[in-house]
Design a binder for these strands. Structure first.
Length: 406
RNA sequence: GCGCCGGUCGAAUAGCGGCCAUUUCAGGAGACUGUAAAUCUCCCGCCUUCGGGCAUCGUCGGUUCGAGUCCGACCCGGCGCA
């Protein structure tokens, strides 16, 4: 994009090319919930992202490896990513049992303090399941309470066994409620962990190179993760530090203010080397993509489309709708009239709403297909708009319809 | 006709003299951003300035400082005996 950080490009992986910008579908436990890989492919997804911590707990990275690696075990032939487990340092740590989100919401008129406080309240009987030290993170399994220690080296070893095309350095995702002093401390620690992740990755690459060619399965790429919370100086410092290390690409992690996510991302992407891919971890919602992409992000992953699908929220060009709303009981048209997803080509919203209301499992499949199709193709349309030099028009039109409704 | 049970917010329930009439489902609305999540939150008699106020446990009376809870009569339902 002329005069901007945004770009369209390609990421080559051992399992194929990703045309960017691209939305990477989340399949935490080596499955995109409610969908078969054929359905994921058919709706337009290019790649999936699984999670190291979850796969380590179950079925265990040895099982994944014995099944032939992540691609084989889940029957996904395209590119794959694994997150390092760094997000679980947050979600099972300070955020556990609370309503704290990695995005701080736009605060309305002076209730900020009250909301912050109520958000930080932890439910009784839910102590944190993650404890962070210099060496790594001690997790208590959410499944059986057993203790598991993740160091940067351990995360990389597990990710090596799982065998995704792109893996992430072990980092600490911090909370938006943490103060600057803590953000700085955590960021510095993440930088040290990044160096350790990279060092262990290099060792494993050398070991792997000794394997016979057929067993090698191509080279695994390692992305370093930028942190620094909502602070410009920390974000820039982190981007410079991580950007100077010999990673194959970068993840942008941690917490943001919802309202200026684009600004925060620009601080970072101005510093990161231009020639390497940048993945914005855990984002986002439709409006987030425009801001992040024009400020230089290439790939994204987010649980929102699939989780919200299962919980009854559907994306439409005119904004999100709640499938359980009474008015949809007699809506005898597709979720969106001109949507080309499998769900909209074959079913009425009345039927899908009925399935959801009666808790039929097919509801999850049909709503997940629609939401993922919507998000994957939204990012694809942004890519095409960049290539056609119509990004600004597309952004304006889309956001107007999305915010104002029909 | 006699006897025994039982009538609680749409359904099913708890409640055995004094917390705010409980919980589940159904119903209504909302939340969800690198998945602890087919999860969670709120509402669900009426009014409300959102602090609360007023009702209400089949009906009508009674006992009591105080009754969904105890007593009496009646109404309704089930079962049993005539």
């Amino acid at each position: 994009m002329f005069g901007k950080l945004g770009r369209a490009g390609k990421i080559e992986t051992p399992h194929g090319t990703i045309n960017t910008p691209a939305f990477i579908v989340v399949g935490t436990k080596a499955t995109v919930k409610a969908l078969t890989p054929e359905q994921v492919k058919e709706l337009g997804a290019q790649a999936v992202l699984a999670n190291t911590y979850h796969l380590y707990l179950e079925p265990g990275e040895k099982i994944v490896k014995a099944c032939g690696g992540l691609h084989k075990i889940m029957n996904w032939s395209g590119p794959t990513f694994t997150d390092s487990g760094g997000f679980q340092a947050f979600s099972l740590g300070v955020a556990f049992g609370t309503t704290i989100s990695k995005l701080s919401k736009p605060q309305s008129n002076g209730f900020e303090e009250r909301e912050r406080q109520s958000e930080s309240v932890r439910s009784e009987g839910m102590p944190p399941l993650a404890k962070i030290t210099e060496d790594g993170v001690m997790f208590k399994s959410y499944r059986d309470g057993g203790e598991h220690f993740f160091s940067p080296e351990k995360s990389i070893e597990i990710q090596n066994s799982i065998g995704a095309d792109i893996i992430f350095a072990f980092d600490e995702c911090t909370s938006p409620t943490a103060d600057k002093q803590y953000q700085k401390e955590a960021m510095d620690r993440t930088h040290r962990w990044a160096a350790r992740s990279l060092a262990r990755h290099r060792e494993l690459q050398i070991e792997n190179a000794k394997l016979k060619f057929e067993e090698r399965k191509g080279k695994q790429a390692l992305f370093g993760v930028v942190q620094g919370g909502r602070f410009e100086d920390l974000r820039k410092e982190s981007a410079k530090t991580i950007g100077a290390m010999d990673f194959d690409g970068f993840g942008i992690g941690g917490s943001f203010d919802k309202q200026d996510i684009g600004t925060a991302v620009s601080w970072i992407n101005e510093e990161l080397p231009e020639g390497k891919p940048r993945h914005l971890l855990g984002i986002g919602e439709p409006e987030d993509f425009f801001l992040a992409i024009e400020n230089g992000c290439d790939t994204f992953d987010c649980v929102a489309p699939t989780r919200q699908a299962r919980n009854g929220t559907l994306y439409t060009r005119a904004g999100k709708i709640h499938i359980d709303n009474t008015k949809y009981r007699e809506y005898f048209s597709p979720i969106e009239a001109d949507c080309t997803c499998y769900t909209c080509r074959n079913y009425t919203l009345a039927y899908v709403a009925y399935l959801a209301r009666t808790k039929e499992l097919l509801a999850h499949t049909l709503t997940s297909i629609h939401n993922l199709h919507f998000i994957v193709h939204l990012v694809e349309k942004i890519r095409l708009a960049i290539l056609a030099d119509t990004f600004n028009e597309f952004k304006e039109t889309f956001l107007k319809d999305y915010r104002n409704g029909k």
